[in-house]
C-alpha cells in the first residue's frame, strides 16, 4: 500500500460521466407572445398554462414545478410592467436616471438603437421580485412611488411572501423545509416541520395560483392609479376634456388594461376616464 503504482487509476464509486458540450445559443427563439399585449394578459396566459399542467396531475414533483412556475410568472409580470412604466412614465424614468446599468447593456444599446427599450430590463437585472421586501423596495427605488402601501396590497404581498418561502425550499433544497423558512413563516408553529418535504395537494396549488393572481391584480390596479394620480398634478398634461385627453389616457390604459375576458372589467375608456377625473382632478 505504501508504494504508489503510477499506472493505477483512482477508484470510481459510481459510473463514469459522459461528455456533452451544450450549445445555449440555439436555445433562444423570438418571443412566442408577440410584442404588444398588455403585461397582465401575458401573465394570465402564463398562469393558465401552468394550471393546465399542475391542476391535472397528482404527482408531488408537478406540484413543486408548478410552485416555481407560478412565482416565475409573477416575477415576469413585475419585470415587464416595470419596464413599461420606466419607458413611459416621466417620474419613474427620472428616478432611474441615476441608477447604474451594466456596461454590456450600454454597449448593446450603443450599437443597436432598438435595444434601448430593453435597457430598463438591464436595470432590473439584479432585482429579484420573489419576496415582499424586494417588491416593496423596487416600487420605491425604480418607480418613485413613496409612502405606505395600501392595506390591500400589503395583504396580497404578505400572502405572496409565504409562497416565496415555499419557492425557496423548492429551488434550493428540492422541497425540503429549512430553518430560515421556518423563521420567516413563524418559528413557533413551523419549527416542528424543519426537514420535512413540501407536499402540495391540488387545493394548495389552486391557493398558490390564486395568491399570485391576486397579487398581480392588486399591483396592476395600484400602479395604474398611482401613475394617474401623480400625472394629475401636472396641470399641463391633462386638459380636463375626454376628447382632448383620450389619446394620452389610452396610453396609460394600454399598459395596464387587460383584454383577457376572464380578468378584464368591461369598462369603456370614457367610464375609466371619468372615474380618473372624479378621483384625481
Amino acid at each position: 500500500m505504501s508504494k504508489k503504482n503510477q499506472k493505477s487509476i483512482p477508484p470510481s464509486i459510481n459510473q463514469a460521466a459522459s461528455t456533452l458540450s451544450f450549445d445555449t445559443l440555439k436555445l433562444f427563439k423570438a418571443s412566442r407572445k408577440g410584442g404588444k399585449k398588455p403585461v397582465i394578459d401575458l401573465f394570465i396566459e402564463n398562469l393558465t398554462e401552468i394550471n393546465k399542467v399542475t391542476l391535472t396531475s397528482s404527482e408531488t414533483i408537478t406540484g413543486l414545478l408548478g410552485l416555481l412556475g407560478y412565482v416565475s410568472a409573477v416575477e415576469g409580470y413585475f419585470r415587464q410592467i416595470f419596464r413599461e412604466i420606466i419607458l413611459f412614465d416621466q417620474y419613474a424614468r427620472k428616478k432611474c436616471l441615476s441608477h447604474d446599468v451594466s456596461f454590456g447593456a450600454a454597449l448593446v444599446v450603443s450599437q443597436k438603437a432598438k435595444a434601448v427599450d430593453s435597457l430598463p430590463e438591464a436595470l432590473l437585472e439584479n432585482v429579484i421580485f420573489a419576496s415582499k421586501k424586494n417588491i416593496t423596495e423596487a416600487i420605491k427605488h425604480y418607480l418613485d412611488i413613496k409612502g405606505n402601501l395600501p392595506d390591500e396590497l400589503e395583504t396580497a404581498l404578505k400572502e405572496f411572501e409565504k409562497i416565496c418561502q415555499l419557492r425557496h425550499c423548492a429551488v434550493h433544497r428540492y422541497g425540503q423545509f429549512g430553518s430560515q423558512n421556518a423563521i420567516a413563516l413563524g418559528f413557533d408553529g413551523h419549527s416542528k416541520k424543519i426537514g420535512f418535504h413540501i407536499c402540495l395537494e391540488l387545493e394548495d396549488l389552486e391557493n398558490i395560483a390564486t395568491i399570485c393572481l391576486n397579487l398581480v391584480k392588486v399591483v396592476n390596479n395600484f400602479l395604474f392609479n398611482k401613475l394617474l394620480e401623480r400625472s394629475a398634478k401636472d396641470l399641463e398634461l391633462w386638459k380636463d376634456d375626454y376628447v382632448k385627453d383620450k389619446k394620452l389616457f389610452k396610453k396609460y390604459c394600454a399598459i395596464f388594461k387587460p383584454t383577457n375576458k376572464t380578468i378584464g372589467v368591461t369598462k369603456h375608456y370614457k367610464t375609466l376616464y371619468n372615474q380618473f377625473r372624479n378621483r384625481y382632478a
Binding site: 393558465t48 395560483a209 376572464t262
Partner: peptide
C-alpha cells in the same frame, strides 16, 4: 365546490 381554476383550460373560475 371549492374549485378555483378550470382543470381543462386553466382559467380562473368566477
Amino acid at each position: 365546490e371549492s374549485q378555483k381554476f378550470c382543470h381543462q383550460c386553466g382559467y380562473e373560475l368566477i
